[in-house]
């Protein structure tokens, strides 16, 4: 999936408001694979919505979104499942980990499906993010920051053309933020993928190729 086209997309929460100034909503633009993007805005401007529309988790919008040349409105449930298996991966703001399950079981739910990566790979990446000996711990026994890093690793455990990270640093200190950047950069380079990070405005000391203000 090389390109993502937005054509005059307006999400449902803006149907009733006449004037909004945004580089995204109501405008047309293209995102290219292989580039890093930062989407920044204050709370409530629709950062999560923007990523969810690309991911197919929300479908309430006007206008068209094309993934390459495919209109997302023409995609069925199974098409989306296929895309999520090896084209688009997403880190959710609320992480969406299975709290009752162990870290290992959470990873297995991903690796059993796509089979491109193994647990020892995940364990290595956890170590890269300064997390050790957590594989057999249940997620609800981990701190927010630890859970966030587990969720990041899970989102990297598949092939992808696009990586969508929704506020990935909210619970991380500066050092860990840098570790995440290094790991993500490495994985994105391996996959030759594009990535989009949403943020409240902070660039976290990283230089993105493209910055979009919502």
């Amino acid at each position: 999936m090389k390109q993502i086209h937005f054509n005059e997309v307006v999400p449902s929460f803006l149907y009733d408001s006449a004037d909004y100034e945004s580089e995204v909503w109501g405008n047309s633009f293209v995102l290219n694979k292989g580039e890093s993007h930062l989407v920044s805005a204050f709370s409530g401007r629709g950062k999560t919505t923007f990523l969810s529309l690309i991911f197919g988790a929300r479908k309430d919008f006007r206008g068209t979104i094309l993934l390459d040349n495919q209109d997302t409105k023409g995609l069925g449930l199974n098409d989306w499942s296929g895309l999520r298996q090896d084209k688009v991966s997403m880190l959710f703001q609320n992480l969406r980990l299975f709290e009752e399950l162990t870290v290992k079981e959470n990873f297995l739910l991903k690796t059993q499906l796509s089979k491109d990566f193994h647990l020892d790979q995940a364990e290595q990446w956890l170590a890269d993010l300064d997390l050790k000996d957590v594989l057999n711990r249940r997620c609800n026994t981990l701190s927010q920051g630890q859970q966030q890093r587990v969720a990041i690793v899970r989102s990297l455990l598949q092939r992808f053309d696009w990586l969508l990270l929704d506020e990935p640093f909210s619970h991380l200190d500066k050092e860990n933020q840098q570790r995440v950047f290094r790991l993500v950069e490495k994985r994105v380079a391996e996959e030759q993928a594009g990535w989009i990070v949403s943020s409240l405005g902070d660039k976290h000391g990283y230089t993105f190729q493209r910055e979009i203000a919502l």
């Binding site: 449930l77 499942s81 296929g82 999520r84 299975f98």
Partner: peptide
């Protein structure tokens, strides 16, 4: 749980 598994790429 079902939604999350769907987001991970599981088909219905």
């Amino acid at each position: 749980e079902i939604r999350t598994l769907g987001y991970l790429g599981y088909t219905y």
